[in-house]
Amino acid sequence: MRAARMLIERRLSAAEAVALVRRRRSPGALGNDAFTGRLAAGPDAAALLVERDPLG
């Protein structure tokens, strides 16, 4: 997870970062579609999802 975020911060696209992590670790790495979707949405959208209060 951290590795993919760091790669994106270093100017790789989310798809490139996920592909690199999978190539280096395992084809099953980062297999959670919700997580890879948040990576693709970018840090601002991901922050909104994390900070969102389901009761508020």
Rank of each mutant, 00 (worst) to 15 (best):
R2G: 14
R2Q: 10
A3H: 10
A3C: 09
A3R: 13
A4D: 12
R5I: 15
R5A: 15
R5H: 09
M6S: 09
M6P: 01
L7P: 05
L7I: 08
I8Y: 00
I8F: 01
E9P: 04
E9M: 08
E9R: 13
R10D: 10
R11K: 12
R11H: 13
R11F: 03
L12F: 04
L12G: 01
S13C: 03
S13N: 00
S13Y: 03
A14T: 06
A15C: 02
A15P: 06
E16L: 04
E16A: 11
E16R: 05
A17Y: 02
A17I: 07
A17S: 03
V18P: 02
A19L: 00
A19G: 01
A19I: 05
L20Q: 07
L20E: 06
V21P: 01
R22F: 00
R22C: 00
R23Q: 08
R24W: 07
R25P: 07
R25G: 07
P27I: 10
P27H: 08
P27M: 05
G28C: 06
G28H: 10
G28V: 12
A29T: 12
A29D: 09
A29H: 08
L30S: 05
G31C: 04
N32R: 14
D33C: 10
D33T: 15
D33A: 15
F35G: 10
T36E: 00
T36H: 03
G37V: 08
G37W: 06
G37N: 09
R38N: 11
R38Q: 15
R38H: 10
L39Y: 04
A40Y: 01
A40S: 08
A41G: 07
G42P: 02
G42V: 04
P43L: 04
P43A: 14
P43H: 09
P43Q: 11
D44S: 06
D44W: 04
A45P: 04
A45S: 09
A45W: 00
A45N: 05
A46K: 04
A46I: 04
A47S: 08
A47R: 11
L49M: 11
L49E: 12
L49A: 14
V50W: 06
V50C: 00
V50Y: 00
V50Q: 03
E51N: 09
R52H: 14
R52C: 08
D53K: 00
D53Q: 05
D53R: 06
D53W: 02
P54D: 07
P54M: 08
L55A: 11
L55Y: 11
G56W: 02
G56V: 13
G56Y: 03
